[in-house]
Design a protein around this nucleic acid. Structure first.
Lengths: 128, 128
DNA sequence: TTGATAATGATAACACAATATCAAAAGAGA
DNA sequence: TCTCTTTTGATATTGTGTTATCATTATCAA
């Protein structure tokens, strides 16, 4: 029987309120407010459970550990800040002419776009 | 002094002739023709050297080990076949309206696109 | 409140890709 | 050809992220 615990509430809440994909360690940090002493094992366990029940989905970026974001969003892509390394969600505005660049006989099932740059917070604070 | 060996020639040739990004194990396989008994350590060593002198560059895809392709190509993106898991190069045809989807204050420095689907070889052979 | 048991936290163990080690083999100047 | 030294292949080791283990703690139905 599944139990309701402070840890699970804190982890779910952290992911819900982040508004951007979080990695396991980011989830750990963000959840500590609502669950002091939280351990990384519980974070991984909860992420697994939330994935299994479809509450969150995995965001994989090249060369990085998985991040997780709340499910049910519209099709979107991501932006990675090369200063703070946070990942943000980008609104709509999707590829128009995917087909044109495709070799003959190739069939497309999905695509993903990753934009690199500097987020507003880091750009404002300059350097760092 | 750097020496010219059959292994290095075979590895460089494999990457040159592949026409698509190869992972370390793919390089190993493709190079065995020209260098029987080739070991994976030599593949990694050669890849490192080719990267260092700018002959090849790294192609990172989400959740996968790095692949490598010959350098000097025009800006392009990649296609990953979900059947055979090979990665192919896509021709030009790039994102027009990246800016429009960006939050205020974000600065773009680069982007990458990955298209998922089935390559012509796998589509022709159906299933598998 | 009690008791059965699910969940937790610390940490050991694991999986995987990549690097280090080292004796043996091979390249190349003399 | 000989010799010095780089390179190689087998494999041990490392590093990073994730999972397993297990004694302890906490939930919640009765």
């Amino acid at each position: 029987m599944v139990r309701d615990t402070a840890q699970r509430r804190a982890i779910r809440r952290a992911l819900e309120e982040a508004g951007r994909p979080l990695g396991a360690l980011e989830v750990l940090e963000a959840s500590k407010a609502g669950a002091p002493g939280l351990g990384i094992a519980t974070v991984y366990r909860s992420i697994k459970a939330l994935l299994a029940d479809g509450s969150i989905c995995e965001v994989l970026l090249p060369g990085e550990a998985p991040r997780y974001e709340f499910a049910g969003k519209d099709h979107h892509h991501h932006f990675r800040c090369q200063r703070c390394e946070k990942v943000f969600e980008l609104g709509g505005g999707c590829l128009p002419d995917l087909k044109s660049a495709l070799p003959r006989g190739f069939r497309v099932s999905s695509h993903e776009v990753l934009v690199h740059g500097v987020c507003s917070g880091c750009a404002r604070g300059k350097r760092r």
